[in-house]
Amino acid sequence: MRKTDKKRDNTIVSVLTQVCHLAQEQGQGFQWLTHKVNYKDFPGSLTVTCVYDVMPSDDVKKQMCDLIQSRLQQQAILLRIPARQVLFKVEK
Rank of each mutant, 00 (worst) to 15 (best):
I68E: 00
S70D: 12
T11G: 04
K40N: 14
W32Y: 14
K61T: 08
C20P: 02
D59N: 14
L33I: 05
M1F: 13
T49P: 04
Q75M: 13
S57W: 11
D5G: 07
Q26S: 15
S70P: 07
Q26K: 15
L46F: 01
S70A: 13
C65L: 15
K40H: 14
M55P: 07
L67K: 09
K62A: 12
D53K: 04
R8C: 05
V19H: 03
I68Q: 00
Q26R: 13
R84S: 04
A83P: 05
C65F: 05
R84T: 02
Q73N: 14
A76G: 09
R8N: 08
L22Q: 14
T11A: 08
F42N: 04
F30C: 00
L87A: 03
T49N: 06
R71F: 08
K40I: 11
A76N: 14
F88V: 03
L78T: 02
D41H: 13
K89C: 07
V13R: 14
Q31A: 03
Q26V: 12
S57M: 13
P56H: 07
K6E: 11
V86G: 00
N10I: 06
S70K: 12
V13Q: 13
G29E: 00
V86A: 03
I81L: 11
K62Q: 12
C20L: 09
V13E: 12
D41R: 10
Y39R: 09
R8G: 02
K7G: 11
L79G: 02
L78R: 01
V48C: 05
P56E: 05
L16E: 00
D5M: 06
I81G: 07
C50S: 06
V60P: 03
L79R: 02
Q63M: 15
E91M: 03
L79D: 02
R80D: 09
V60R: 07
D66P: 05
A23H: 04
K36L: 03
W32T: 11
V60D: 02
I77H: 04
L67I: 12
V19G: 01
W32L: 06
K3G: 14
V60I: 14
N38K: 09
I12T: 01
Q73M: 13
S57P: 11
L72V: 07
E25F: 10
V15E: 01
H35K: 09
D66F: 09
R2Q: 14
K40R: 15
W32Q: 05
D59M: 10
A83T: 11
K6T: 10
V54T: 14
G29N: 03
K89P: 00
T47Y: 03
L72H: 03
Q24N: 11
T11Q: 08
Q75W: 11
S14I: 06
D53M: 07
C65D: 04
Q18L: 15
I77F: 05
A76R: 13
K61W: 07
I68F: 01
T4K: 15
D9R: 10
